[in-house]
Write a protein that binds this DNA or RNA. Structure first.
Lengths: 194, 194
DNA sequence: CGATTTTTTGAATCATATCAACGTACGTGG
DNA sequence: CCACGTACGTTGATATGATTCAAAAAATCG
């Protein structure tokens, strides 16, 4: 399981990882398993760990006054999960994160992560690469949601992240798209006939 | 004008900037002035520079098939402007960036920026800090747009970025919020009476 | 001052939400 | 292995919020 993480890091950095550095990485990350529906983070808690998903499926969402869930992010195999704001600032989170499938994680605490980043250039580089990709993806999603209709956003998701549709139930996909489950059902029916 | 940039960088980093490093920064950034309505970047162009706004007001937007503008980002004094994706990947941009007020910039090319980041730790640290803040802000905006009604988003903008409302016309604010100018007008009228 | 841009208002229309009911699939315990 | 319960998906009817188009009013600029 650590091999998956090490491979992941080296693929996203230029500086190679030495044997000693690999050992540091192994020491910093602790394995954790989550069952289906188990929380990784609950609203009000501080996000203590940055988690690498070895395998599984999770979602990050907020709950509004009416009790409706709004999914802001999905994560599956080999994605990172954390509430960035809460993790970086060590403030209480406004989000929940839970597992939709049985999930295996490797977790690093913030202090351990900070020293790891200083000790291992590849980790630093990976972090930057991820931030870069994250910013670009976030920008695209903002554009999508302010410019496109519900149908266009669904079709775009179908094109860019088809695996989400296979691993999460449709009402979660609807929440992620910012529409009601019923609307998504109708959109799909309509899109089929085209 | 370079002083503003140097102060900006040192406030957002921990490592102090030496005199030599300050000289490197001055060399890397070239001043540029934009008149009102002048483009910094046009759709289809590659974003060659990262621009620090010394003073002024700009917007980044896309144009859909119907010719409607969708503003994804505003920038004012002491913000950075660039299409991140185009700048990092050196691919043609899908966005336009133009000046709404007379604007003074300090621009750095991508190669110069990369070497500067390596030579000056403070620049590296600032970059990370900005990425971090950018990711957090983007996440919040995504949440806002999928969870809140138009009115709630307007009130939120009023609270978090009141200066935008003073420096950009209302129809641009509407575009930024993802609603029509008419709807924003009606929302404001209604909100006043409360 | 006139010209242009911006904001407001009204009326018609459209997209999506909501509520309620029903059908279906799935997994779990007996 | 079947039956039952719960979660998921679909459909219809209605309500609502936002868009569109058109025009007038107000503000801004040269």
């Amino acid at each position: 399981m650590y091999d998956i993480l090490l491979t992941y890091i080296s693929q996203r950095s230029v500086t190679p990882i030495t044997a000693e550095q690999a050992a540091l990485i192994r020491d910093a990350f602790k394995p954790k398993k989550l069952r289906k529906k188990q929380y990784l983070l609950q609203e009000g808690d501080v996000c203590k760990y940055l988690s690498f998903m070895v395998k599984g499926a999770m979602r990050q969402y907020s709950i509004d006054e009416k009790g409706n869930e709004h999914i802001v992010r999905f994560g599956i195999d080999q994605w990172w999960m954390a509430d960035r704001e809460s993790f970086e600032m060590q403030t209480p989170s406004r989000y929940n994160i839970d597992a939709w499938e049985e999930t295996e994680l490797l977790q690093v605490s913030r202090p351990a992560y900070l020293s790891l980043r200083d000790a291992v250039p590849a980790v630093m580089e990976m972090t930057q690469e991820l931030d870069k990709r994250g910013s670009i993806a976030a920008q695209k999603r903002i554009q999508a949601v302010i410019s496109y209709t519900a149908e266009e956003r669904y079709l775009d998701l179908l094109k860019t992240h088809p695996y989400f549709l296979q691993r999460f139930p449709q009402h979660m996909i609807a929440s992620y798209l910012g529409i009601s489950a019923e609307t998504l059902s109708r959109i799909r029916k309509q899109a089929l006939s085209k």
